[in-house]
């Protein structure tokens, strides 16, 4: 019962992140690269129902007035209520006075861009990259592991030695070195493909080892011999009969690889070797916030870290229950 509730919380967190990313164009009040020059590092605007005199209104916000340009401090402009508008301009909700008092649910960054909009657009980049990389790792690792487990012998030995070697290496450094070989500034699409293939290469050994073990033991079972006796070819036996037995293992591995890849993207982008600047991803957002004196004064700039934590927590909770401890893996 308890474990059930915990894994439901995990599902809810992951589903929320997916929904926010998929619905980003609708949910985001602004474009990811839209700048408000007068609102650099402005704090979040809080949606309110009750105004300064205590009377109740439809949801509204107060705009920000710059009180100290040097320290970038703002105070609320209480003289004017700005009602929220629903379903206008292609967004679910936005302020009725977008130019002077935009709706900034999570404040603005040092370029005056809306952190909330960037967060959900960035979630698209980060989550899509992690998902594509994890799926590629599963395909690559599943095939290699399947072949190694099915054929045995020298192929098996060689492939397992190679996976041993890759698994020992610290993943961050390998990704860093491989990424650094290529020009620092690349189009976002190329970076996406590049990072996805690097991550897939680093994740595949974990899949390959498990798949190999399962295929090896399944091969000896009666149903495999039966299929072979009925004349199934090697490829058919492996793809249609043996690999489906690894489903459970692969599902668990996916929920471990995705968080690792989300963090890997964030780390690479954080040091400036991930996505190029205008692209919103959770890593590039942290990169913009990287200056300590900046994020100590403007804590909302750390919201991508919070988002990352919630998604990773959600995926970890999905694995809750008796299976959890058995699948503990070292963080990458």
């Amino acid at each position: 019962m308890h474990e059930n509730r915990v894994s439901r919380l995990g599902t809810a967190l992951v589903a929320a992140a997916l929904a926010a990313s998929l619905g980003a164009p609708l949910l985001a009040p602004h474009r990811a690269d839209q700048r408000f020059a007068g609102l650099l590092n402005a704090p979040p605007t809080r949606p309110r129902l009750v105004d300064a005199d205590g009377s109740v209104h439809a949801p509204f916000i107060y705009g920000w007035r710059l009180s100290n340009r040097l320290e970038q401090r703002y105070e609320e402009d209480r003289s004017r209520r700005i009602p929220l508008e629903w379903w206008t301009g292609g967004a679910v909700v936005r302020s009725s006075d977008e130019t002077s008092a935009p709706l900034l649910l999570l404040g603005a960054d040092s370029f005056g861009r809306d952190v909330f909009s960037r967060l959900i657009f960035g979630g698209r980049t980060s989550l899509a990259l992690a998902a594509v990389a994890a799926l590629s790792a599963v395909i690559l690792g599943g095939l290699l592991g399947g072949i190694a487990g099915y054929l045995g012998g020298t192929v098996d030995e060689g492939l397992m030695r190679a996976t041993d070697f890759i698994m020992v290496l610290p993943a961050t450094y390998v990704a860093l070195a491989l990424r650094a070989v290529l020009p620092l500034v690349l189009p976002a699409g190329v970076v996406f493909a590049l990072l996805a293939s690097i991550f897939a290469l680093l994740g595949a050994p974990f899949i390959a080892r498990g798949v190999r073990a399962i295929v090896r033991s399944e091969r000896r079972l009666d149903y495999a011999s039966a299929a072979q006796a009925l004349g199934a070819s090697d490829v058919r036996l492996l793809l249609l009969h043996l690999l489906p037995a690894t489903r459970g293992f692969i599902a668990v591995e996916l929920t471990m690889l995705v968080p690792a890849f989300i963090v890997a993207e964030a780390t690479l982008s954080y040091v400036g070797l991930g996505f190029p600047d205008p692209v919103a991803s959770w890593g590039t957002m942290l990169h913009d916030a990287a200056n300590v004196s900046v994020f100590a004064d403007f804590p909302w700039l750390l919201s991508p870290a919070a988002a990352m934590f919630l998604v990773v927590l959600g995926l970890n909770l999905l694995l809750q229950g008796p299976s959890f401890s058995r699948h503990v893996r070292l963080p990458m």
């Binding site: 963090v263 942290l286 994020f295 934590f309 990773v312 970890n316 959890f324």
Partner: peptide, 14 residues
Amino acid sequence: IVVLSLPPLLTSLV
């Protein structure tokens, strides 16, 4: 389980 969801990048930032 909560701490497991905080990789070193996040713990150090926090």
